[in-house]
């Protein structure tokens, strides 16, 4: 017995570094493309510039952050509001679709999931621009809406919050559908039989069994939609107006037009911090760690 234990120990010691070895490409990647950029970002956010086109110099310039907070409240608010509504909309649209494919798709499942992804082979920009022709004032959709009584003559979708939210929802929808589908796919649907057997109506079975078990997918999908949506600026650029601008619009302009790298960096960091906080609260609230089956 003693000999066995010691040989086990030896084996353990020998393989001790193997996991780290296997992880090293990932760690290297993270350090190189996440940690280093974030540190540069922090450094830039605390820098000041001697003149407009000078390179930022590190100087503990905390005022960049106050500027981020004081000047761009509406853009931050809209970013989170629009991203939030887009996320909820994506759940409302994506969940039933994923559910239908997972339960009714049969042998067409893979094809159907493929179809969900197909539009996303087109570039994001092109898809967004295509929406402008879809939602144009004199387009099919608007003409149908205008045919409804009591719709005001100047009702429109382009250059409105609805247009931006619609675009965000559409552009990130597949990021909601795929994880939900995967989590639904993993559910043993005999559990719904068990629920029905235990006097659960189909709705109760869904609410008490399928929905909670698919929450990891909803959680993952929400993050995948909310995070990029909150930082997005293209949907506002093409489907919005000056009054629907989001924080991404500001960051983009600060970086590329105004060359105000420090404030742009500060804005990015604030956005990152708020999102991280929201994600933590959200995960706490959903308590997904206990759902792992």
């Amino acid at each position: 017995m003693a000999a066995d234990t010691s040989s086990d120990d030896r084996g353990l010691r020998k393989g001790k570094w193997a996991p780290y070895g296997l992880l090293s490409p990932g760690i290297l990647w993270l350090v190189l493309f996440f940690l280093v950029p974030v540190m540069i970002l922090v450094r830039t956010a605390l820098s000041s510039k001697a003149s407009r086109f000078a390179n930022p110099e590190f100087s503990w310039q905390f005022s960049n952050f106050t500027s981020a907070f004081t000047d761009y409240g509406p853009q931050f608010a809209r970013s989170f509001l629009f991203a939030g509504i887009a996320t909820v909309s994506a759940i409302l649209i994506g969940y039933p679709l994923a559910y239908w494919i997972a339960t009714q798709g049969g042998r067409w499942k893979n094809l159907l999931i493929g179809l969900v992804v197909v539009p996303f082979f087109t570039s994001y920009l092109i898809r967004t621009i295509a929406w402008t022709s879809l939602l144009k004032d004199d387009g099919v959709i608007l003409n149908v809406i205008h045919a409804i009584p009591f719709v005001p003559q100047d009702f429109r979708l382009l250059a409105t919050p609805a247009g931006v939210i619609g675009g965000l929802t559409y552009n990130f929808l597949s990021f909601m559908i795929l994880p939900i589908y995967v989590s639904l796919e993993k559910i043993d649907f005999r559990l719904t039989e068990a629920a029905a057997d235990l006097y659960g109506t189909p709705w109760q079975a869904f609410k008490k069994v399928v929905l909670p078990l698919s929450m990891p997918g909803v959680f993952a999908g929400s993050l995948l939609v909310f995070i990029p949506a909150a930082g997005d600026y293209l949907n506002n650029r093409y489907l919005g107006s000056p009054k629907t601008s989001m924080i991404g619009t500001v960051v983009q302009d600060k970086f590329l037009v105004q060359f105000d790298y420090p404030v742009a960096a500060a804005l990015s960091l604030v956005l990152m911090a708020i999102i991280t906080t929201m994600v933590l609260i959200y995960s706490k609230f959903l308590g997904t760690e206990g759902l792992a089956v």
């Binding site: 043993d188 005999r190 559990l191 039989e193 068990a194 629920a195 029905a196 057997d197 235990l198 006097y199 659960g200 109506t201 189909p202 109760q204 079975a205 008490k208 069994v209 909670p212 078990l213 206990g290 759902l291 089956v293």
Partner: peptide, 19 residues
């Protein structure tokens, strides 16, 4: 439908609700 029948089943895989 099953939820309106007063019979209950013990499933082969138990089908316990994991969550």
């Amino acid at each position: 439908p099953p939820h309106k029948r007063n019979v209950n089943t013990v499933f082969q895989n138990y089908a316990l609700f994991p969550h």
